[in-house]
Design a protein around this nucleic acid. Structure first.
Lengths: 131, 131
DNA sequence: TGATAATATGCGCAAACGGTCATGGATTCA
DNA sequence: TGAATCCATGACCGTTTGCGCATATTATCA
């Protein structure tokens, strides 16, 4: 019982789990990806819609969207020429909302955007808000 | 109402907020930092305790601890020779626990460590668990 | 079929990041 | 005071990451 070096097998699993969790958080650790979440958490949108809304380049948005899709947090649907993306991981959207509330609260001890940040979630199914 | 370019002032705030939220998630987007959270979320520990428990180098742990402290998620207390670190952001610990549960659930559709991951939080004040 | 629009991707680049080694600063103890 | 312990930090390095440019791919439309 000296340290972390004993029931090896299980520990490897735990290690692997930490990497998975880190990867999960990585998705949300980038402003552009957060803006994307913010843009499509309520309704699916096409790549070009998102590009226009965020004022970013198509290449960049496409990369982020693909990354998020591979990570399983976005789903996509192709319709003719265009591809619609939407949030596929309700838990992530909720976590986003929680953290946004948390940050907004500790950012505004002066009142502003909090509402906007919280908007990250559609009809907020009233709940937690540890804020 | 063409795009994102209208009520500018507020928008800048929102932009800044996205960066803050991304920074917040960045803290959790690294396996070693997650292991640190896992190690001290229940009780404060000294740097050397953490180093030994994680089997990492003192330099590396120290850097992460300082980073997490500057980010406001850890608090520290110096006592004599040593420095005790502890979780200072209850919301973050809770988010960790939520995500760990989420990931554990979608990792084990085969049953293992889930319990260990959830242990991330001490006496889990029964709640959500959207899992 | 050829032109055009929507999206994805290979390549290269600069910056950020995680890590190590060596060292410095502070505190305890003999 | 000097040795030893604990922690932080500067310098450096390889890898990853976010980005843009150009190009490929796919689908619509004339």
């Amino acid at each position: 019982m000296d340290s972390v070096r004993e029931n090896g097998a299980k520990l490897d699993k735990l290690e692997h789990a930490f990497e998975a969790v880190a990867a999960y958080f990585s998705v949300l650790s980038e402003p552009t990806r957060l803006r994307i979440m913010h843009a499509i958490c309520e309704e699916e949108k096409t790549v070009s819609q998102i590009v226009e809304e965020l004022g970013a380049t198509q290449t960049n948005i496409s990369r982020h969207l693909n990354m998020m899709h591979r990570s399983g947090v976005l789903a996509r649907r192709k319709q003719g020429n265009q591809v619609y993306y939407r949030a596929a991981d309700a838990a992530m959207v909720e976590i986003c909302r929680d953290v946004c509330g948390h940050i907004a609260a500790q950012m505004d001890e002066k009142k502003p955007l909090r509402g906007d940040l919280l908007r990250l979630m559609p009809k907020s199914r009233g709940k937690k808000r540890t804020v």
